Simulated scan of single mutants.
Amino acid sequence: MIQNVIEEKLHLALSPTFLDVRNESYMHNVPAGSESHFKVVVVSEKFENTRLIARHRQVNSALAEELAGAVHALAIHTYTPQEWTEQNQLAPNSPNCAGGGK
């Protein structure tokens, strides 16, 4: 499962205190059972004093192989532990698919 690979790679690369990887492919016009659209919420001390673009680059780097292959879309939400607490441990919901038939 691609979802498991994503989880493993992010754990290794970022040592998150919280990680949520969701397969959101069902929200898009893809065949049932697809693993092509994901949302990741990563809380890591490695994001301390790091700009958002650098955080996203860290995630993209860890998942470069998946992004070059089966993963079509990746929504990334990155937080430090303090930011996560200030967010009430909630990340934004993904928007509805704008293309395709759903």
Rank of each mutant, 00 (worst) to 15 (best):
K46M: 09
P81H: 02
H72I: 01
A62P: 02
E48D: 14
Y79Q: 03
F38P: 00
L14E: 08
S15I: 02
R55P: 01
N23P: 12
V40H: 06
F47D: 10
S25E: 06
G99S: 15
N88C: 04
A54C: 02
L12G: 04
H28V: 03
S34N: 07
V71N: 12
E66K: 03
N4L: 03
P92L: 03
A91F: 10
G101C: 14
V71W: 07
V40Q: 08
R22D: 04
V71L: 06
A13E: 01
L67M: 13
V59N: 03
Q58P: 00
P16A: 04
I2W: 01
R22P: 01
R51C: 08
L74V: 02
C97K: 08
Y26N: 02
T80A: 13
Q87D: 11
A98C: 10
N4E: 15
L90G: 05
R51N: 06
V41L: 07
N60T: 11
P95F: 10
G101A: 13
H72W: 07
A91W: 05
F18E: 13
Q89D: 14
S44H: 06
A13V: 05
E8W: 03
V59I: 15
H37G: 12
L10R: 13
L10M: 05
G101K: 10
Q89C: 14
T80M: 11
A68D: 15
N29R: 00
L90W: 10
P95Y: 10
P95V: 13
G33D: 06
P92G: 07
I6D: 09
P31M: 08
N23G: 10
H72K: 13
S36V: 01
L12C: 02
V43M: 00
K9F: 00
P81K: 01
E7Y: 00
M27I: 03
V42T: 11
A68F: 10
I2Q: 04
A62K: 11
T85Q: 14
V59P: 01
T78W: 05
P31L: 11
V43P: 02
R57N: 12
H28N: 12
V30L: 15
Q58Y: 03
P16C: 07
G99P: 09
P95W: 13
S36R: 14
Q82R: 05
V5H: 13
Q87I: 01
L52S: 11
Q89Y: 14
Q89F: 12
T80E: 07
N60M: 09
F38W: 12
R57S: 13
F47N: 06
P92H: 01
A62V: 05
A64T: 11
V59S: 08
T50I: 06
S61T: 15
S36G: 05
